[in-house]
């Protein structure tokens, strides 16, 4: 049995405001394996980005991780460590070194005052202890690896001199600068045009094959998930409602939300001017999280009052987990009582 590099267990992250507490991530669990991509998909407010930030320990105030474990198997073997128990200093050695991060908005994530070579080099010098000259050489090597043309010239340019696609390549180079084993990519192609998106996704796949990267890909786009992910976690209002291999999620979706979501996606394969099946209503405001199963007010397959009053536990085979009373949840609660 292959051990996961990263396991998230029962992660809870909440934001407290005057109006109340928002449970942005409310008990999320998943595993990430070497050379595989876990796609985390969901609509706005489902907690996918907060999950990523929780793993890296960069949740912004007033947000706070309130429970769970994030187990990382560090390079060089040994027992997995719980990132939530690390000191800020130790966590700094993980962030950027063992887990790389690619953000959505490449323009907002770079400093405009330093050359890209400088910015890539910063992490290399800090984590790997190289001197300025060696770091620069490594930066050029990395730019070449991610397909930036004329890397030895580009290394001295500033982010505003690059196009969106190139900036995202530089961001990937930066995330991979210290050979991390896990890469978290948060909507890496959302700000890009489709033809550029195709280039970047191709690059990520290629790098994964070469370096055996474990990738957590966070996106709202089911098309990107279908293309990139090996495993998928579908999130709704802070919970993973369905987790499983990509073929099962698309081939035999079980949770009513996954099913409805897949049906409602526009596709180039549709008949022209064909009406799409819709999901009724809209995503509730996080302060008004519905009692019971959070999806029940929009669910067309609602079972009975249980959906309105109890939160469905996780059920199903170990490779395909579902949080819905339609799928063995009832039996599971019965046994627990």
């Amino acid at each position: 049995m292959v051990e996961p590099i990263l396991s998230v267990r029962g992660l809870h992250t909440s934001f407290s405001a005057q109006e109340g507490t928002v449970r942005a991530v409310d008990g999320v669990s998943f595993d990430v394996f070497e050379g595989r991509t876990l796609g985390v998909v969901g609509e706005s407010g489902c907690g996918k980005s907060v999950t990523a930030r929780s793993i890296l320990g960069i949740v912004e105030r007033p947000g706070r991780v309130t429970g769970g474990e994030i187990l990382l198997r560090r390079a060089g073997g040994g027992a997995p460590v719980d990132l939530l128990k690390l000191s800020p200093d130790d966590m700094r050695k993980v962030r950027g070194r063992e887990i790389g991060l690619v953000f959505q908005e490449p323009m907002a994530s770079f400093s405009q005052y330093y050359t890209i070579g400088n910015q890539i080099g910063e992490g290399i010098r800090l984590h790997l202890g190289l001197n300025a000259k060696a770091a620069r050489e490594r930066a050029i090597e990395l730019l070449d690896m991610v397909g930036v043309p004329q890397p030895s010239r580009r290394v001295d340019e500033y982010p505003f001199q690059l196009s969106g696609g190139l900036r995202q390549r530089v961001m990937i180079a930066m995330a991979l600068s210290c050979d991390p084993r896990v890469l978290i990519a948060d909507e890496p192609t959302t700000a890009l045009d489709v033809t550029t998106q195709a280039q970047i996704l191709d690059l990520l796949r290629d790098l994964q094959q070469k370096h055996g990267l474990a990738i957590i890909l966070i996106t709202h786009d089911m098309g990107v998930i279908a293309e990139m992910a090996h495993d998928v976690a579908v999130m709704y209002l802070g919970r993973a409602v369905e987790t499983g291999p990509v073929r099962d999620i698309f081939g035999e979706p079980r949770h009513p939300y996954t099913r409805a979501l897949l049906r409602s996606i526009p596709t180039v394969l549709a008949k022209p001017r064909s009406r799409l099946p819709t999901i009724e209503g809209s995503i509730p405001h996080p302060f008004n999280r519905p009692v019971g199963c959070a999806y029940h007010p929009r669910c067309v397959e609602i079972v009975d009052d249980q959906c309105r009053t109890e939160e469905p536990p996780e059920a199903g085979p170990s490779t395909h987990r579902i949080r819905c009373f339609l799928h063995g949840g009832r039996a599971a609660t019965g046994a627990a009582q």
Partner: peptide, 25 residues
């Protein structure tokens, strides 16, 4: 043709023969 090919379809394994355009707009 390239635009159509780049549009991600919600079907796993659909991308084997995608056209990846080189360079930039």
């Amino acid at each position: 043709e390239a635009l159509l090919s780049a549009a991600p379809a919600p079907v796993p394994d659909a991308i084997s023969n995608r056209i990846i355009l080189e360079r930039e707009i």
